[in-house]
Write a protein that binds this DNA or RNA. Structure first.
Lengths: 190, 190, 190, 190
DNA sequence: GATGAATGAGATTTCATTCAT
DNA sequence: TATGAATGAAATCTCATTCAT
């Protein structure tokens, strides 16, 4: 008896990501995805009962993955700034190396595919980031401003940075990354 | 694009923007646009010879408009920081009040609709922003870092801020706007 | 400006009927119908927003038509038996000449296409038949049994008769029709 | 059709009947049937090599069963009318209690599933009914009309009766059944 | 034999575009 | 120019059937 294959889901996700990054969420068809994944179109429907569901599942997976990666190596007992820097670098590295996911998440933001439910679950995943920023504020290293605002600042700059990098108007190197972190830290530090 | 009836073009543009913000670039059809604009589908093709052309024209119009608005009231002879602040506020106000355009521009980024030509023309419109930043660097008010990097910082924050505001996780008021500008300025100032 | 064409609806209906009689409700596709009607498949969707809706509309039209034809030439003031006979013959003639509709109505009976709403509306169209039978009972020409039961007798025979005729195990002629009417009348008369 | 497991064939048949009665012959899939029968889709193909074959086998089984049941308790040596009445009641009871089979047979009539071969074999099973009616005619109890016509009358009324009963416009009880038999007998008796 | 994942042909439906009015 | 019906290619999705386990 053949069993549903977890690898296949990953294949499908990767194909979808690749295509969305290349052609945008519009213009990616189920046929494209199956062709890219090397399976029959009908097989997609064994794993996801509609295009909608596929996109939502992928969205959820990307969000989860991105949060998990961000906190890799983070130790809440260690001093704040190096820990913060580590997370900052994790995020940047993640966004650069998984550019397709970054694009996909952004494209989903205003798409009719993502349901309210999926959106809410994604929001809940942000909790650790809020906690991080609160800790910085408590230790008086970070400005005492609205936490959401501070996070927005931190994330927004990265998104734009990654986008510009990818499209060639900026080329990143170790130095520039350091400069960028300093810009960010200067903004947030109290 | 025949300029027989300017009002109709504006109607079409606004309908398209409204729908893209609501449903994403994918899932907006020519039928939707014409219905929203209160005209017949065939009439769309009197003004634009294809969906591609419509989207590209709208993209160009939005970009142009956004730059024009940004520099309203800017006087290169006046002191830098207030001028910079004015522009920063112009951009933020524009993005907040014209959220649909912001979404549209973002959605277009990875879409197959936007041609290389359109993309390049859009890039050229960024020149005044580069000049602004260069002036700040020359006056030693702004850090001596890569100009693209600095601009990225300025713009990225705003995009994220507007998005979060619109989706309700942040509610902006005068104070918060000031705080955000200060974050930005602290990042950029030398 | 092209206007929606009533003739086209009739064309579509006739094509659908022809195909259902030939191939059964299962196995008739929208593609078949459009091909038979000599129009593009997409055009079907200009007139009916789904296959479901097309089938329901056709069902309603057939039912309505069949009732209308049945009472042609019926005069409630004239004596009962000839009037009854006239209606009986109308129905039989209709079913024979419009065999496709007969088949279609029968096939629809248990199909998932027909909605409760359509079914109820169809039921209401039976009122004149009930009135006819009630009149016969009041004039003491018809047995004083349950009206529904009596009608069932009148209609049931015809359905089976038409089916058998069409499939060749019975060949009808004037005499046989008279005999069948007599069978029916003998059953119902008091 | 391998007879490895008779119970499974019965399960499959019953599932198919149930579903056809609920959703019509169109719209019943092999997947539906297997799910209802509690077996895997692939297993269906162990017992029947195609959907066609399954439907044809079920059709044949239903026809055969219905004839067998009809003549239960019939003794050609006993007087005609009670014997005829017995058969009439057998048929009615069968159709009422096995409504799903009745529906299925009706739906098959115009379907592309039933082959000419199956259809002919079914026709041959009607022979005992012809003989019954011939006997009645010979004994001068039944009208001397075309036998097919007489049978058609008898069967057609029952079909309609059962349908109306099932869909609620008639509720049968012992009295009404007696009345109905009398209607039928009045029609056929010479 | 039993399973259910995999297949791909084909069904339904959508939609950019054309065209007759 | 304006209309919206008509088109047909292409998208989504279904389903009878096969196949690996």
């Amino acid at each position: 008896m053949k069993l549903k294959d977890d690898k296949k889901v990953i294949q499908i996700f990767q194909s979808a990501l690749k295509l969305v990054a290349k052609k945008g969420l519009s213009g990616v068809t189920m046929g494209d995805i199956s062709r890219e994944a090397g399976i029959a179109t009908g097989t997609l429907y064994v794993y996801f009962k509609s295009k909608d569901e596929l996109i939502n599942a992928l969205f959820a997976a990307c969000r989860e993955n991105s949060v998990k990666v961000s906190f890799k190596g983070y130790n809440p007992q260690a001093p704040f700034k190096p820990g913060f820097r580590n997370i900052w670098l994790n995020i940047l590295r993640y966004k650069l190396q998984n550019f397709e996911e970054t694009v996909f998440l952004e494209q989903c933001y205003h798409s009719p595919f993502i349901t309210v439910d999926t959106r809410e679950k994604a929001q809940q995943l942000s909790a650790p980031f809020y906690e991080l920023m609160e800790r910085g504020k408590k230790e008086q290293l970070i400005k005492n401003a609205d936490t959401g605002l501070l996070l927005t600042f931190m994330i927004g700059t990265m998104n734009e940075l990654v986008k510009q990098t990818h499209y060639g108007s900026i080329t990143l190197n170790r130095t520039k990354i350091n400069v960028t972190f300093d810009l960010c830290w200067d903004a947030l530090k109290s």
